[in-house]
Amino acid sequence: MSYKRNKAEIVLDILLSISQNNNQIKITHLLRKANLSHEAFKKYSEELEVKEYIKLSIIKKQHFYSLTPKGYEQISKLKPLKEFMNTFDL
């Protein structure tokens, strides 16, 4: 897309990246999939954790992000909007 993503779109991209990776993703992989810098992601991840959309877990000394039920709920709300944008392609 040629225009800059807004906050809601970035949030959806983060949530979708986690969901598409079997609900468990390493931070580096997530940054690449959601196309975000570390600084930008830090800002969003804090907010998403406070809203209980995602949670951080440590498995074998590695940090993983996963979705909460609220996160899945948010995806089902936002995904059709994104799909509409992809279909109409304006």
Partner: peptide
């Protein structure tokens, strides 16, 4: 109506 929802979501004026 749905296009307006998309506009609120994306802030893309085209919608």
């Amino acid at each position: 109506i749905y296009s307006y929802k998309v506009f609120k979501f994306s802030q893309n004026k085209n919608y």
